[in-house]
Design a binder for these strands. Structure first.
Ligand code: ZN
Ligand code: ZN
Ligand code: ZN
Ligand code: ZN
Lengths: 151, 151
DNA sequence: CACGCTGATGTTATATTATAACATTAAGCG
DNA sequence: CGCTTAATGTTATAATATAACATCAGCGTG
């Protein structure tokens, strides 16, 4: 039974599509979709809230057993690297992403009450800046506030 | 002897102005510029790099003695609340701020190598977004990359 | 299939960042 | 001074993240 989504603009929160995309990505790129990786991604994809690493740890079973932190963090790192999840810095937490987008101009609306996260994309804010020799790698905006429900 | 600043566009990193501003702020607002608060702010103002809470802890002496974490975190919280410092989420670290600005449209260029931080201000990225009921409180952009020196 | 290589995971321990809870002290005021 | 309140001191611990090394699984090769 899928949880009703009332805060993220109707995003369905079904992990199916994302897992399918992940399978495709892995086989196309010689990566392995192992049990820890699959469980971590599914857990994030099912949630409409950002989850901390230890929330994920509590939620997943790998071969019927509780995992340990490095297992979770390795899977998180893997999906971060390949753009399937994002880290929400202001929460020390993670959300899945089913968009295709580059690394610039990502904007998160983060509810400080319920931890739901809405992802949006705007023109890169770097455009407006004189970088003066700074070499950007990754740009991310986080707006903390209250979502429609918690407001 | 002031450290030569080569990465932040010539910002002088002298704590004098900021401390003076802080004194003024405190007396105008019935707040106390206590030893822990003063030492923490001075330490951040002297640094052209973001400092973690435990970096600050190692750097300051309060009445000749090393402080303990809560002392540092309380001072950090105080200056954060009053806009004298910022938290760089991607580093879990803090920088001083001698600008006067509101809480929207702050943009940090963060060097992942040397941890120097350049602060810039742009039009609020929220303008470009359909907030759809989301009530923003604080918005911050962090661009991680390499500064001119580390590049 | 044994072998060896590689990448991933398992496991133990510990580092790093941050806060809860309560005791004590210092400032401001009548 | 004696009261009130805000701030700090102190102890302990929570929450987040990683280092280091052992083991295992997949895979190509012979
Ligand atoms: Zn995304
Ligand atoms: Zn909410
Ligand atoms: Zn600032
Ligand atoms: Zn640098």
């Amino acid at each position: 039974m899928l949880e009703k989504n009332t805060c993220c603009g109707g995003h369905s929160h079904t992990p199916k599509n994302l897992i399918a995309k992940a399978e495709e990505f892995c086989s196309a790129n010689g990566q392995r979709l192992t049990a820890p990786r699959a469980e971590v991604l599914k857990t994030l994809a099912r949630s409409h809230k950002a989850l901390g690493a230890y929330d994920i740890l509590e939620a997943v079973l790998i071969d019927g057993k509780k995992a340990k932190p490095p297992t979770i963090y390795r899977a998180i790192e893997f999906w971060l690297e390949h753009g399937f999840i994002h880290r929400i810095e202001s929460l020390n937490a993670y959300v899945s992403c089913d968009h295709d987008h580059d690394t610039a101009g990502v904007h998160f609306l983060v509810c400080e009450n319920c931890k739901c996260v809405r992802e949006a994309h705007t023109a890169s804010p770097l455009k407006a800046l004189d970088l003066d020799g700074f070499e950007p790698k990754h740009s991310q905006t986080e707006t903390v506030g209250l979502c429609k429900d918690c407001h």
